[in-house]
Every structure is written in C-alpha cells, then in structure tokens.
Design a protein around this nucleic acid. Sequence first.
DNA 1: CACCCTGCTGAGCAGATTGTCCAGTCATCA
DNA 2: TGATGACTGGACAATCTGCTCAGCAGGGTG
Lengths: 180, 180
Amino acid sequence: MTAGVLYRMTIGERGMAIDHLDARLIVLLAREPRIGVLEMSRRLGVARGTVQARLDRLQSNGVIRGFGPQVDPAALGYPVTAFATLQIRQGQGADVRAHLATVPEVLELHTTTGSGDMLCRLVARSNADLQRVIDLVVGFEGIVRASTAIVMEDAVPLRIIPLVEQAAQDRERPGRPEKP
Amino acid sequence: MTAGVLYRMTIGERGMAIDHLDARLIVLLAREPRIGVLEMSRRLGVARGTVQARLDRLQSNGVIRGFGPQVDPAALGYPVTAFATLQIRQGQGADVRAHLATVPEVLELHTTTGSGDMLCRLVARSNADLQRVIDLVVGFEGIVRASTAIVMEDAVPLRIIPLVEQAAQDRERPGRPEKP
DNA sequence: CACCCTGCTGAGCAGATTGTCCAGTCATCA
DNA sequence: TGATGACTGGACAATCTGCTCAGCAGGGTG
C-alpha cells in the first residue's frame, strides 16, 4: 500500500498543503522529539528515506521552523506572565520596537490593528517584579499608555497539533479549490 | 580552567538557577538544534559527559521542556493571527475553556486578571476566514463579549534567549539573597 | 500510446554518534 | 581532614546517520 502518491504539491499563495503522513510525522515528532529518523520510519511504517525526504521538505518549506529547545520561563525563575497592550504615539513605532527588543522580559511583541497599538507578552520574577518590568517597558517616550493583564492560568498552553491535524484533513477534502 | 565548579544549585521557591555554561548550552542549542552532544561539547570546550549531565539536569528540572518541532501556522496555510479578549459569564469559565480547547484555531488560551476575562491567540486562513473562527469561538453561551485585535507584524517573534542570558547573569551577582 | 518525472521502497556501506562505563583531579562543605 | 559533587579524558559496543543505488508504480505529457 503506497502511502502517498495521492501527491501533488499544492502551494497556495501562502501555505503548503500537508498530507496525512506529514501530519502523523509532525505529531509523532511533537510527542517524542528525541527519536531519530530510523525509529520514526519504523513507527510510521514507511521507509527511512521517505521520512528523511518528508522532513527535509517540511523544513525547507518552512512548515517546521526548527527544533529549538522549549524553555520554561517559570523554571528559570520567571513564573509571572502578563500581556500588555501599548498605545503608541504616531510615528514612534520603530523606536518603541527597538526599545522593547532590548528588554529580555519582553518575550514577544506584535503590532495590531487599531490606533498605533501593540501587544506584548511579559514575564517577571514576581508580581512585585512585574512592576519593574512594566516601568522598563513603559518608560519610553513613544508609549502613551499601557494596560496590563496578568495571566492567572494557562487554560490552553501553546499548541499546534490540532491545527496540524486539521490542515491535513482539509487537504484530503479541499474546502475551496485552488486555482489550477 | 575548570568551567563550572562555582557550583551550588540554588533552587528558589520556583525556578532554578542557571549558570553561564547552562546558558551557553541553551543558546547553542537554540541556534543549531540539530547538533549532537559530542559536537556541543566541542563547541563549548567541555567534556562530553558534562554536556550530557547538564542537559539531563536542565530537562529534569523543567527548564528545557522539550525539543518539539516549531511549526509555522502561516506555512500551514494560516497566515492570519489575532488576539481575542473574552468576557466570560460568571461561573462559566470551565465550560468556555473546554469549548475553546476543541477549536484547532485556538493556539493558546489564558485566564487573566479582571472580571472573568480570557485572552486567546487565534489563527485563520484569511481575514475573511477569521470571521468564521471568531464565530466559532464566540458562539458559546458562556461568552458575553469578545474584542479582537489582528496582528499586523511580529515586531519581536517569540524568543527566550535574552531571558536565558539574563537569568545566567543574575545567578552570578545574586540580586536578592536566597534563604540559607 | 509511449515516455518521463516524481515519490516510495529496500538495501548496503563507511563514518560518526550515542549510551555507558571507568579512574583520576579539584574545589567546596561539614 | 574526610566526604561529596562536578568535571575530565578515555574506552567500548551498539546504533544511527548520510549517502547512494536500482526498481516499481502512478500521473502527466507529447
């Protein structure tokens, strides 16, 4: 039973179609990242070369960005997480970006729709320490106002597997046809 | 020149102290995740057994949660990211959580300070598709109101290296003394 | 219809890496 | 001063990787 061969790379404007084997590969890799290509081929029931080729393709297509270590800020001594919405003075966006990039406690920063707004994820050593971090963040002329929400519980920790599985299913029964 | 040996594991209430070698190890691993223990030991200038022991300790202490593949939703066909703030009806928190956990496009969900508020990260196939996702999310009785911010640019993509380096430096010159 | 291309399989090989020992050295701690 | 913990440097067998090859099957093309 040839696994793939219902194979025709459909690459949309952005985004690459994933088939079921790709999805199983990613899920397997997410659950047991330390296993090698040989072991994966055994688990998935395909040839080693196939796994190797799939992995290479997934990586060169950018679906798999990498295998970097997932570091837990809490274990590092930063158990407090917060999201801050920042209101930026017109035209100061680039400066604010550069400023926030220098603050280690800023784990990510996005510009969002709305009037010069940004959203950033912060961590701190304690609730008290969060004040220091916020002062660091806000203590910059380009920032007009900041409102902060402290995270109490990670109801759904960052995940990707459900989306991968849906993407694989969408591929089998294409919702809307791609342009030929 | 013995690398470590200024070594005394100080584990706070939460969080483990990281020394400079640990930090270098994590940074190296983040930059080139595919290299093995042997290669790491060469780059870091320490014995292979040391790298192995450090890695084991970092993992069992939870600092390194794992090495799962970092999947890019955009490459999967979900280039639109948004953050939604949800206002929850009193006492419906658990139900809402369970509901949102079933939606693949919900990549993460946090409960935050404030009156029954939650913050979630969404992805969608397009701005139009985002409407479908939001309807999916909000179409649940426990949710009173939702306000959405679409991400335009990842000014600072999720990162951890600066924090790791700061944690390592903090260890060398302890800010506040641990209880003896 | 014949032909080509792509993806998958199964196999083989040399070289590198891993897991797991060990003994010895050095600094810190009781 | 003795005990403990961390690191080094070396060794071994077992395993895995990177790479190559030929063959097969399905889909698309001239």
